[in-house]
Nucleic acid binder design. Sequence first.
RNA 1: GCACCGAUGGUCUAGUGGCUAUGACUUUAGCCUUCCAAGCUAAUAACUCGGGUUCAAAUCCCGAUCGGUGCACCA
Length: 582
Amino acid sequence: MADKYEQVIELAKRRGFLWNSFELYGGTAGFYDYGPLGAMLKRRVENIWRDIFVINEEYYEIEAPTIGIEDIFIASGHVGGFSDPLTECQKCNEAFRADHLVGDVVDNPDTLSADDLTEVIGKNNIKCPECGGKLGNVYEFNLMFKTSIGPGGKRAGYLRPETAQGMFVDFPRLLKFYRDRLPFGATQIGKAYRNEISPRQGVIRLREFTQAEAEIFIDPRDKTHPKFGEISDIILVLYSQEGQERGSSEKMSIGDAVQNGIIAHQFLGYCLARTYQFLIRVGVLPEKLRFRQHMKDEMAHYAADCWDAEIQSDRFGWVEVVGIADRTDYDLKAHAKQSETELNVYVSYDKPIKVERFAVKPNMGVLGPLFKGKAGKIANALKLLKSEDLLGDTIEVVVEGEVIQVDKEAVSFENISEEVHGETIIPHVIEPSFGIDRITYSLLEHSYFEEEAKAEEGEEEEKRIVLRLPPEVAPVQAAVLPLLTREELIDPANKIVKALRKAGILVAFDDSGTIGRRYRRNDEIGTPYSITVDYQTIEDGTVTIRDRDSMKQVRASMDGIEENIYDMIYRGKSFDEAGRKV
RNA sequence: GCACCGAUGGUCUAGUGGCUAUGACUUUAGCCUUCCAAGCUAAUAACUCGGGUUCAAAUCCCGAUCGGUGCACCA
């Protein structure tokens, strides 16, 4: 019996949603093409994401290159951390991390090259820990695709393994764009690349995939969200750290979860809520959606809290489709260090604060002639002293390991009272990161239904395949069907097609075969509405509109049909309001 | 990357060391047809790729690729 994955993939392949890439040449694992319908479906999913995160949250979208320079990925840790030296046992074929195996005999296995590691293993006669067999040569496996920039191949470039770094690297420009105020966010929808060792599971694990990410820079001292009230009543299925130890998830409102400390703070809770709304809107079934908290040992060391949205699929079980993390100041600090540039924000206080400060003033007129070239360093050391260090007649400072005595006449000091207007902080980053391909596949699976259609007496039951996609994401939004292949019905049908296209609705005209066959063809690709032109149309200018899911029909005027359909797709108008019941 | 299994029109499938490689559905053209895939006529369309054995290979052997499963890797 074919499982649902097989059924969905078969349909997706046949009707032009998903194709194996490079099929003409035999195909390559980890790459998929979106066919005509798939590309449109994916685009509509992305546009709903934009509606929520770009338009409604005002996290503007940027577009950075898909190739990044080496510095970026040194800072992000991908050059070091995303690559593993592997060695395989020649006898049992188990693969091992070479750096782990030599950990007992050398101090710094991380710094050794693959050749060094091979040598160390050979010299120390290290054998396969499983079966004692001989180990093969060590090779580096980095999950990043490497390339070179410009001629000569001197400058390394990498295909980005995530879109996030583009936003981090643009931080100073973004900060100016948002006029130096927190919080602000930037988003990016684009391709990312990982050279997976052995990608399987079809579209679930790809070597080239689409991410939609937001990087939201917030004040680390204030992780509340001004719009938290709008979403605090939303109930989510939460699979918390405790829940995972217990082995059960629980339904809870976001307000309660933040209150109880299950979700670290309001801002993260807010992102979970918007993620939930997004996923439901594109067609994920709520009962097959949960939010799973990362376990302590699973979370990156810098992360404050991290939740994955997981979707249940028939074959693969719970699949991570979104990661929502509080990455703290890790990324900005890493890039600040690598680029030797300050990446921070000056935050003004509501009111200036009066601060009492003890200040040492070296008298350079005395120190200069006395100490010549060392005078500057000595002065700096003096400035760091506290009031109790200055009590004696001579004052001691240590400069470059040398104890230097300075006469107290050369130093004056006082208590200064001054106003401080603000301070410099490094923002924390909240990062919701979406795997668009996994989401697109999931909603195909969740909207795929095979129904037994009603059969007339004496007839066999037949199968109806229908994609119950939300009208907003359905690639083809309306079908226009003349009941019969006759000139007098085709003419008005063409007029309707024109009007719908003018309203921006993607419409398919189909006059081949029986009407039933055409309905079924459209059910299978999720076309939500079919408009049928019959002889009554000629008489009174009305057509029937058929609803994909209920197969019910209403009769509505041909005049203004484009608004009628548009309102049902985008403005929540119900099908019953579309016309008179038939 | 390792082990095992598999690969025939768009989809599902029959089949054999030897004539022009089945069949169904789909699709296309035409006919018919007044609302839920099944009428009539016709057409299009396939043995994953490379090498070997053989007079002859889609069939047997080897390798590659892709897919599935387990291991490993990975989020």
